[in-house]
């Protein structure tokens, strides 16, 4: 009996336990790609898209593994699925929107090692979500990732013009801001019931 409503699953992944700021998934791209809004937006979109695809595959794989009773293959098969999903998305985008492909091109391979995707797949399995719940969860996770990324990019671009003390510059400051954001997101606790 998984009593979690779809709205709660979405809000939980996007806001209350934001994928990046509270669950610490996808920290590397969060630190790496949040410097410019121009790249943060497409990256968020790409990750959300791959999450959605991977979620479907992961759900299917999980069902198969349950049938053939081989839970130990979960990790290997998930990582293979995600890598293929990224490939698939890459091909798909290349074929249907060369413009988007050029915009996202460099990020797509990066997504394979983005722990937010694998984390999303593992979470949805561990929490026993059904198919629809999994899809909503993947969208919530993607939205949460994009939100954190875009907000951080906005802040960092604004801070490009600031007099940041030399010691704090760089990753240290980004982490501190993430900490403050994480505290601010605590305000969402209890929503969506």
């Amino acid at each position: 009996m998984t009593g979690e409503s779809l709205s709660f699953i979405f809000i939980n992944a996007a806001l209350i336990n934001n994928f990046v700021l509270s669950s610490f998934l996808g920290i590397c791209p969060f630190l790496g790609v949040s410097g410019k809004l121009k790249t943060a937006g497409p990256m968020g979109a790409a990750v959300t898209f791959v999450m959605f695809i991977s979620s479907i595959f992961a759900y299917a794989i999980h069902q198969i593994l349950l049938i053939i009773e081989a839970p130990y293959l979960q990790l290997i098969s998930y990582i293979v699925v995600i890598a293929s999903a990224v490939q698939l998305v890459e091909m798909f985008i290349k074929k249907f929107s060369p413009v988007l492909y050029r915009a996202l091109g460099i990020y797509l391979p990066l997504i394979t090692t983005n722990c937010a995707i694998l984390g999303m797949a593992l979470f949805q399995t561990n929490r026993g979500y059904d198919f629809i719940q999994s899809l909503i969860f993947s969208l919530g996770a993607g939205a949460g990732f994009s939100l954190a990324l875009i907000i951080m990019a906005g802040i960092r671009e604004a801070l490009d013009l600031a007099d940041i003390p030399g010691l704090v510059k760089g990753t240290a400051l980004t982490l501190m801001i993430a900490g403050i954001l994480s505290m601010a997101f605590m305000g969402f606790a209890g929503l969506g019931g």
């Binding site: 700021l21 509270s22 669950s23 610490f24 990753t171 240290a172 400051l173 982490l175 501190m176 993430a178 900490g179 403050i180 994480s182 505290m183 605590m186």
Partner: peptide, 11 residues
């Protein structure tokens, strides 16, 4: 809490 993790690593 998550916030603390960011702060301590930042520090």
């Amino acid at each position: 809490l998550p916030g603390g993790a960011f702060f301590v690593l930042g520090a």
